[in-house]
Design a binder for these strands. Structure first.
Lengths: 184, 184
DNA sequence: CTCTGCTTTCAATACTTTTTGAAAAATTTG
DNA sequence: CAAATTTTTCAAAAAGTATTGAAAGCAGAG
């Protein structure tokens, strides 16, 4: 923030503006995207910003670039670190903390899958197991339908769980090799 | 609501209560689950209710069973029908409309995937294509990092898109055969 | 056409989640 | 240790989302 950024040559006159515009549009889109999937918009925007930033950024810089408050930045950076998507980075002789995002999009996916599986799928499976036996022995249609529905869902959830677990464990190359062959 | 439900025999004294309790717990859990994934809690609860209900229900019955207003039921039933998860069912000689859920959980998954792919993934891919060229020719690190990030994300989004498209088109048995062999 | 019974709409309200910003806590430096 | 700088916390405010309920709309029956 205190230093003047160096000027780089460019073929196009409007290049500098265009890059800024593109960055802005991507950050917005990533924010909306995350939001639609139950991730706080600001958290996703900070993530987007760090994804396209060549250098680590300080909380101060994020505040200014995204126009959000100190507390908000702090809160969401912590969440991003909890998810393993962003790491703190210290610089020798500097007091201020900097932050970088893991730029490997496959790693990002794995971490998001791991986190949400733990938070949402696993509790659902536990519940389904707990309710699994209810109504199995009864003739009441309500009981029977409940039992059948829960059994089907439980079976499906188990499959999903295994697929996701494999995804989380997969090595990037292996995963892509198989998938790229399978899917077009 | 106006007719007395028939009594079914059961091995356990507390069976009736237990089934009701289980139904309630499942509906709640499904509501929270949907909510975490960006689906309105009530919409998910109505879906859960119809999933475990042996008979079609009217809007009136849903209102009473879930304790929600007429307008709310109407709105969310419409959304569920838009997603293709619930169908209207008319009875001969009856004016009132009834609703049933598609009980095939694999179909449900496919429909949800299709809908969200259309609403969220496709627009993101369009944007990435649009922004794809920005900064490719520049030396400015910001431009280069933006370009690299967007290229990586674009490539990944394309893979995800193809995988999901295959899932949507897959026959259940085929899907499971392949996946069960691949994963564990 | 009018009554009746049901569905749909939507402005107002209630509820939930996010954001702010100032104060407190923590950490480094001299 | 106190001063300086930075991070963290959290109650209050703002923003966003869901829900209500009364009124309007619609369709079949008489």
């Amino acid at each position: 923030m205190t230093e003047t950024p160096p000027q780089y040559p460019s073929d196009r006159k409007d290049a500098e503006l265009s890059v800024e515009e593109a960055r802005k549009r991507f950050i917005e889109a990533w924010g909306n995207f995350g939001n639609a999937w139950g991730i706080n918009r600001t958290m996703a925007q900070i993530h987007a910003l760090l994804l396209i930033e060549p250098e680590p950024l300080s909380a101060e810089q994020i505040m200014e670039l995204l126009n959000i408050s100190r507390g908000n930045v702090n809160m969401n950076l912590r969440a991003l670190m909890d998810w393993g998507l962003v790491a703190r980075q210290l610089r020798l002789g500097e007091r201020r903390e900097y932050f970088v995002a893991d730029k490997d999009i496959f790693q990002v996916t794995k971490k998001v899958v791991r986190e949400r599986k733990k938070r949402e799928l696993s509790p659902m499976i536990e519940l389904l197991d707990e309710l699994g036996a209810v109504g199995a022995d009864q003739k009441d249609p309500k009981a029977r339908e409940l039992n059948h529905s829960l059994t089907r869902i439980r079976r499906f959830a188990g499959s999903a769980d295994r697929v996701l677990e494999s995804l989380i464990r997969a090595e990037e190359s292996w995963f892509f090799k198989i998938f790229m062959k399978l899917f077009r």
